[in-house]
């Protein structure tokens, strides 16, 4: 029974957390720049406004399907990542599955943006995919290292192993090289500065979002909110010992988000080839060292 309730209400909870995290991000940025900033629930207002717009421009059926694929794929990923009290689906698909269902939303969006026939959008997707190859290689390697260390690819088992030994059993503690490499890769995955090459409003007119408006942009924002929760939770589950209860889960989410926002506030934007080069140099080398420590 509780599983059914979780399945129904978990997306709403995750959406609420995501909206608050994004609102917190805006506020944080504003305070760093000595502005007052919008209220923390502003992101929610924005989504409401966009979803109720009367003008919705469509460039064809793939453009529409893309949004459905984007949100549908994100919901799928959300269910397969365990959170405290809800890891029903992690018995049906391990981390390798999560790594590849994470690509469904990106593929959906890429196809839709392609159909809008705007070169800014296509350039944005081209950059996003190059970044994907940049951050996913070190990230996958850190995961492979953790899986070999734990002897399993199942999320719940990796979490249980970490929690058995308290704070010193966390992935970040047992293998700091992998933990740091994954943290940098996570930063690229979240597309925050200096890896914000995909959106780059001053260069390519917000890239993939160029031709998106009204409910299309609204759905993209909903997905973005969920995606923030997904990406942070993956890192928490792999390297911060998962979470035993919701209080520690929320604390870990906000601490990790603050860390990423502080780096974001400090940097400008890399050019895409520099961003990929950085990813293939620093985190990848750290991850290789981490894996060598494990297997040797």
């Amino acid at each position: 029974m509780s599983t059914v309730l979780w399945i129904i209400f978990y997306p709403i909870i995750a959406f609420a957390i995501g909206v608050i995290l994004l609102g917190y991000g805006r506020k944080f940025n504003a305070r760093v720049q000595r502005r007052y900033g919008p209220p923390i629930q502003q992101v929610f207002y924005d989504i409401l406004k966009l979803m109720s717009k009367r003008t919705n421009i469509s460039h064809g059926w793939m453009h529409d399907t893309a949004l459905v694929m984007l949100l549908g794929g994100t919901l799928l990923t959300l269910y397969f990542i365990p959170v405290p009290g809800f890891d029903f689906f992690s018995g049906y698909g391990d981390f390798l599955v999560v790594m590849y269902i994470l690509l469904i939303p990106s593929l959906g969006m890429a196809l839709g943006v392609g159909e809008t026939a705007n070169p800014n959008g296509s350039i944005g997707i081209s950059r996003a995919l190059q970044m994907l190859a940049g951050y996913d290689i070190p990230f996958a390697l850190t995961f492979i290292g953790m899986a070999i260390l734990a002897g399993t690819t199942n999320f719940s088992e990796i979490i249980a192993l970490q929690q058995a030994e308290g704070i010193f059993g966390w992935g970040l503690m047992t293998n700091p090289f992998l933990g740091v490499a994954a943290l940098i890769a996570l930063h690229g995955m979240m597309g925050e500065k200096p890896f914000e090459v995909m959106v780059a409003p001053h260069e390519i007119a917000t890239g993939p979002m160029t031709e998106m408006g009204g409910k299309y942009l609204g759905m993209m924002m909903i997905q973005h909110a969920l995606n923030v929760v997904i990406e942070l939770t993956i890192y928490i589950n792999l390297f911060l010992g998962g979470a035993a209860n919701w209080a520690s889960y929320l604390v870990k989410l906000f601490v990790l988000m603050t860390l990423i926002l502080s780096v974001n506030a400090l940097f400008g934007r890399f050019r895409v080839d520099d961003a990929v080069r950085f990813m293939w140099k620093v985190p990848l080398v750290l991850a290789v060292i981490g894996v060598l420590i494990i297997i040797l």
Partner: peptide, 16 residues
Amino acid sequence: GLLLAWIVFLLGHKRR
């Protein structure tokens, strides 16, 4: 997930 996303898509006004 696709069905749910489709419902969200239909919640908005008609597209042009």
